[in-house]
Design a protein around this nucleic acid. Structure first.
Length: 472
RNA sequence: CGGGGUGUAGCGCAGCUUGGCAGCGCGCUUCGUUCGGGACGAAGAGGCCGCCGGGUCAAAUCCGGCCACCCCGACCA
């Protein structure tokens, strides 16, 4: 397994399967998330959900099946999603009068319901979120990154005006950036998408982009300002204070289980996964030394230690599988990305200590049993920030400002290019055709600057350099 | 949809060119010895060789057709 080589996707697949995160589903492009993988998702979910609720949104649930006509009400939306829809044509033993699509996203049903629920400015803003699975018949599936069916969270909000809706759009974006950086230790860049990369039906689309260890970009969360496009298509109107009937300004935003793929591709190494402590199902794994009877004897003290760690708020697991050798377990938990391992054998026990090994690091060091919770906690914190710093350094080392076409082509070969662009769709297509790179975003933090398009030399259109890269 | 590849035990594969008892490694079961970095020995269980057809005394192997999956591109969170 070598994350650096061109076998990166082979490395990725091997890592994901060996760590027992997923299995292939029976339907093309689907994935089964196994318990260990699902625990990671639950931790991520909890972090996102807490932030959503803290900002005043309520969770709701909308139907899986959507009348096909709903999709058709918004012209760009239907055009964008048509090729990848799964359509139900038969139900109840007969052909349906109107086919139903399995939701690829829920703007349309949510819009339909919002139109019923909103009548006055007093009903606004309406801040909804749902946790759901959606289906998109993509051409080339990849575990977590692009599966036919995937789990996500989709926020849908309606507001009285553009300013409110834009504030909401950026609030969601900021939430995603925070989750990515602080929880997943992924140093994402946030910014706006170019018109060519916009969500079908949106007026403005924002994104957080992460860089994987092969230099490719991964869109890790997205937030859209719809203007009144969907409000007009679904008649989401309210009576304003002055008595006039107005269209709402709506937003939608989502973050998906794709993030797990991002975590693996951001931090993983030749030994397998490295989970940031905040997403690790088991932050500490205690391996009793020995097998059979000898390991049995280590279990009571191992469990006692686990109990004290858990009481300190540390997710702890005792690997009590009796038939496996310690060496096997060491390798197994390295593969599965456990941040900290504690080895507990007769020798350690006699000395009142355990042998600690950090997933990202060399060697092992003894830790006294009584100070273990404190020591482990600080090691977890250190690892969490080390992962973010390491990924940030990596990203920066693979990001180059390109002022000429050869520089640009070279930069996107192994990472990202910062470059001016003319904003012409044809030129954007040209870049993609010639280098397979696309504009990832107009970075929010980039300094304002003027220049000429890196490919065609025309005047730049966005007032700053864009980030270009190859995307997953 | 275009290009490449693969279907043989739960997983990974060999065997196919040149037809002749369906094999290997891992895993699984039982017993014993082991046990501080992927343990070892012995004995077992496990098969519609992707599917359909052709031809042959005889097909995993040759011929024809079909299907599925994987990888590379175009699509995308």
């Amino acid at each position: 397994m070598t994350p650096q080589s061109e076998d990166f996707s082979a490395w990725y697949n091997e890592a994901v399967f060996k760590a027992e995160l997923v299995d292939r589903g029976p339907v093309r492009g689907t994935m089964v998330i196994r318990p260990y993988g699902y625990r990671i998702w639950e931790l991520l979910q909890a972090e996102i959900d807490r932030r959503i609720k803290d900002t005043g949104h309520d969770n709701a649930y909308f139907p899986l099946l959507i009348p096909q006509s709903y999709l058709q009400r918004e012209a760009e939306h239907v055009e964008g999603f048509s090729p990848e829809l799964a359509v139900v044509t038969h139900a109840g033993g007969k052909e349906l009068q109107e086919p139903l699509v399995v939701r690829p996203t829920s703007e349309t049903v949510v819009g339909e319901m919002m139109a019923k629920w909103i009548s006055s400015h007093r009903d606004l803003p309406m801040l909804l979120n749902q946790w759901a699975n959606v289906v998109r018949w993509e051409m080339r599936p990849r575990m977590f990154l692009r599966t036919t069916e995937f789990l996500w969270q989709e926020g849908h909000t309606a507001h009285a005006g553009e300013a409110d809706a834009m504030r909401e759009t950026l609030l969601a974006l900021g939430m995603y950036a925070e989750v990515a950086r602080e929880v997943a230790a992924m140093p994402v860049v946030d910014g706006e998408k170019t018109p060519g990369e916009r969500f079908p039906g949106a007026k403005r689309t924002y994104t957080v982009e992460g860089m994987m260890r092969d230099g490719r970009a991964l869109q890790s969360g997205t937030s859209h300002y719809m203007g009144t496009n969907f409000a007009r298509a679904f008649n989401i109107q309210y009576t304003a204070q002055g008595g006039e009937l107005e269209y709402c300004h709506t937003t939608s935003w989502g973050m998906s289980a794709r993030m797990l793929g991002g975590v693996i591709m951001t931090h993983g190494d030749d030994k397998g996964l490295i989970l940031p402590p905040r997403l690790a199902p088991y932050q500490v794994v205690i391996v009793p030394i020995g097998r059979g009877d000898q390991a049995e004897q280590m279990l009571p003290p191992a469990r006692e230690l686990a109990g004290r760690l858990r009481r300190a708020g540390i997710r702890t697991h005792v690997d009590d599988r009796p038939q496996l050798s310690p060496g096997f377990k060491f390798n197994d938990w390295e593969l599965r990305g456990a941040p900290v391992r504690l080895e507990l054998g007769p020798r350690d026990l006699a000395e009142g200590s355990a042998l600690m090994s950090i997933r990202l690091g060399e060697g092992k060091s003894p830790v006294s049993l009584h100070s273990a919770p404190v020591r482990v906690e600080s090691e977890l914190d250190a690892l969490q920030s080390l992962l973010l710093r390491r990924a940030t350094d990596f990203r920066d080392s693979r990001t180059a400002t390109a002022s000429s076409w050869p520089e640009f082509a070279e930069a996107v070969e192994s990472g990202w290019a910062l470059a001016f662009h003319c904003g012409q769709p044809g030129c954007e297509d040209g870049i993609k055709a010639e280098t397979s790179a696309t504009p990832r975003c107009i970075p929010a933090e980039g300094a304002a600057a003027e220049g000429t398009c890196v490919r065609c030399g025309r005047k730049s259109a966005y007032g700053k350099r864009l980030i270009f890269g190859r995307a997953y």
